[in-house]
C-alpha cells in the first residue's frame, strides 16, 4: 500500500507505515537529525527533525522520525515556526556540547544554518560541559545492534548521563561502533581505548560526572 502526501510542495508517494523523515529522504528532501540512526528504532529525543504537518485542515508540529506518513498529509520541513524551534534547540544544546566555547561537526553546521546564538544560555549551565546531548545513539546501538549492553543511561533530569559498564566493556576493545556514532565526539575523545574508565558507572556513583 502506498499513500500520497505533499512535502515542501512536492507530491510524494510513500510506502504506508514509513516515517515522514524516511519519506522525505527518499524524495531527496533533507531534514536535520541528531538522534536518528537508520538501523535503530526512532528515539525522538533531539527534536531537531520537527516538522509542520497539516492533516484534515489542522496544523501541528511533530518529530518526523517518529511520525508515520498518512494519506493527504501536507508537510513543511522549513517554516518560520520550525526554524525558530530548531534555532532554540541548538542554542539550548550548545553550552553542553561546546569545547572551549566552540561547536564542532554537525552542531556547528546547524548553528550557522539556523543563525543560532550559541552563547544565549551559556550563563545558566554548569562550568564543565558534559559534551553529551543524550541522543542515546551509543546506548541504543549497543543494545539493539551489538547486543552487548555495555553503555547505558543513569539518573534523571539534569543528572542523566550515559555511562560505561567496565565489566561489560571487553567487547568494546574490538567493537567501538559507538565511537563513530557520537554526534559530539565525546566518546572517542574521552574514553581510554583500553580501560574505558572515562565515564564509568563507578564515576557516576561517586558523583564525578
Amino acid at each position: 500500500m502506498t499513500v500520497e502526501l505533499q512535502i515542501d510542495g512536492k507530491e510524494v508517494r510513500a510506502e504506508e507505515g514509513i516515517t515522514i523523515l524516511e519519506a522525505a529522504r527518499e524524495a531527496g528532501i533533507a531534514i536535520p537529525t541528531l538522534c536518528y540512526h537508520t538501523e535503530l528504532m526512532p528515539h525522538g529525543t533531539c527534536r531537531i527533525c520537527s516538522v509542520e504537518v497539516e492533516t484534515r485542515g489542522r496544523m501541528r508540529t511533530v518529530v518526523s522520525c517518529g511520525c508515520s506518513v498518512e494519506q493527504g498529509m501536507v508537510v513543511k520541513t522549513r517554516s518560520p515556526r520550525i526554524d525558530r524551534i530548531r534555532k532554540t534547540l541548538i542554542e539550548l544544546l550548545a553550552p553542553t556540547t561546546a569545547v572551549d566555547g566552540e561547536l564542532g561537526g554537525q552542531m556547528k553546521k546547524l548553528a550557522r544554518e539556523y543563525g543560532a546564538d550559541t552563547h544565549r544560555f551559556e550563563s545558566r549551565f554548569r562550568d564543565r560541559p558534559t559534551r553529551c546531548i543524550l541522543c542515546g545513539q551509543c546506548v541504543r546501538y549497543c543494545d539493539e545492534v551489538v547486543g552487548e549492553h555495555a553503555i547505558g543511561f543513569m539518573g534523571r533530569g539534569v543528572d542523566r548521563r550515559a555511562v560505561f559498564f567496565p565489566e561489560k566493556a571487553k567487547a568494546c576493545v574490538t567493537c567501538q561502533a559507538c565511537f563513530n556514532l557520537c554526534p559530539t565526539g565525546k566518546i572517542p575523545s574521552e574514553t581510554d581505548f583500553v580501560v574505558f574508565d572515562g565515564f564509568s558507572v563507578d564515576d557516576y556513583l561517586a558523583g564525578e560526572l
Binding site: V139, D143, H149, G152, M154, R156, E167, K168, Y204, L205
Partner: peptide, 18 residues
C-alpha cells in the same frame, strides 16, 4: 542487562544506590 537494572534503580527516587 545490568545496564537496564542500573537505569531503573538510578531513575526512581524510591531507590537508593548509597
Amino acid at each position: 542487562p545490568v545496564v537496564q537494572v542500573y537505569r531503573i534503580a538510578s531513575y526512581y527516587k524510591a531507590f537508593s544506590l548509597q
